[in-house]
Simulated scan of single mutants.
Amino acid sequence: MSGTLNVFVVSLDTHSERRIDPHITVEQLKNKLELITGIPVANQAISIQTSVDDPTLVATLADDARPLGFYGLRDWHVLKVDDTNPSTSLTGQLTDVTQVEKFELSDTAYAERTDTVLAYKQRNKVGRFAPKDETSSKPPVEVKIDAGARCEVESTEPGLSKRGTVRFVGTTSFGTSEGVWVGIEYDEPMGKNDGSVKGERYFSCRPNYGAFVRPEKVKVGDYPVEEIDLNEEM
């Protein structure tokens, strides 16, 4: 539907993502929200907040005859619905979800959706997707590690060596700090992934054989695959 806005509707018992026509009146919105939140129209006090992460008040919907656009409603704003008389409704009695089957969406499935906050940020280059200031960024440190090289990765456990093959060298979109990461395909299932992180693939390997480590923890050299002698203790 063209002209609609993607917003979040939040009440004491509910939290959902909805499409709202900014041309409808506050009164019409309340009728719709009663079905979503369970709060009677007469009890609804609605306010607009900046985002899910920023509860800054944008406006209070005080006039039922005004259209939503009058209050500056925008994409990804939060419509917070408070119950002014919870004693007459079930507000607050529906928050026990221990018996409700949990719906989970994998990182890959979430990344493929086009109607999410992540997709919005990617399209509009917001947050971690915003272009970095090239003038203030530090020059990348040269890493002399080649893809395809055999290596051994430093381990925190004494006597444990983690050998594998370098499959990726470069920057990534994950992590809170900048710099180069080295993607390793281990010889044994000692990793954490299959070469992809948060829906983005950097190389391919079997599940739990892949890992990303900092270059300083990687030693490149002639490290053959270690063979296990099954007759050693017989």
Rank of each mutant, 00 (worst) to 15 (best):
A109T: 09
P40A: 09
K217P: 00
P140Q: 11
L94K: 09
E152M: 08
L35R: 15
L105R: 06
I48Q: 01
L105W: 07
K162E: 01
P207H: 10
D54H: 10
K144R: 14
G170E: 12
K102T: 09
T14N: 12
R19A: 15
V166M: 02
I228G: 05
T108I: 14
K219C: 02
Q93Y: 12
V100F: 07
R163Y: 01
V169I: 12
Q44C: 06
H23Y: 14
V141F: 07
E154Y: 07
R123V: 05
A111I: 00
G92L: 06
G127C: 05
F212T: 01
E178K: 15
E232D: 14
S161V: 10
K102M: 09
N43Y: 11
L160M: 14
G210D: 00
L33W: 02
L90H: 11
D115R: 03
G38F: 03
V182T: 07
T114N: 07
K125S: 13
G3P: 02
I24P: 00
P55I: 08
S137V: 12
V218R: 01
S155C: 11
F203C: 05
L29H: 04
N208G: 03
S155H: 04
K102A: 10
E157V: 14
L118W: 00
P22L: 10
F103R: 08
G159P: 01
V78I: 14
V41G: 02
G69A: 12
T14E: 03
G179I: 11
A130G: 05
S173F: 06
V126T: 08
W181R: 10
V41T: 15
E232A: 15
T60G: 04
A211V: 03
A65E: 15
I20Q: 02
N231L: 14
T95S: 11
D75R: 12
E200R: 13
P67Y: 02
Q122T: 04
E34D: 05
G170V: 09
P224E: 07
P131Y: 09
I20V: 15
E27L: 14
E157P: 00
K192C: 05
D63I: 07
P22T: 10
D83F: 04
S155V: 01
A211M: 03
A130Y: 04
G183V: 04
E233C: 11
Q28I: 08
T171M: 15
D96K: 06
L61R: 03
N31Q: 15
C205M: 01
K217Q: 13
F129V: 07
Y186T: 00
S87L: 10
Q99R: 15
A42V: 13
V225D: 08
R201A: 13
A59G: 04
S137A: 13
G127R: 02
A147N: 08
I48L: 13
F129C: 03
G127D: 07
G92E: 03
G199S: 04
Y202A: 05
V213F: 07
P67T: 09
D222P: 06
R214V: 09
L57H: 07
L94F: 03
W181A: 03
S196G: 07
V169G: 04
P67I: 03
K125M: 10
V197C: 04
L94E: 03
H77E: 04
A45C: 12
V153N: 00
G179N: 14
N208I: 03
L61M: 08
E188A: 12
E178S: 14
A59T: 04
I46G: 00
R123S: 10
S196H: 07
Y71T: 01
G175K: 11
L230Q: 15
I24T: 05
M190W: 05
D13L: 06
D96Q: 09
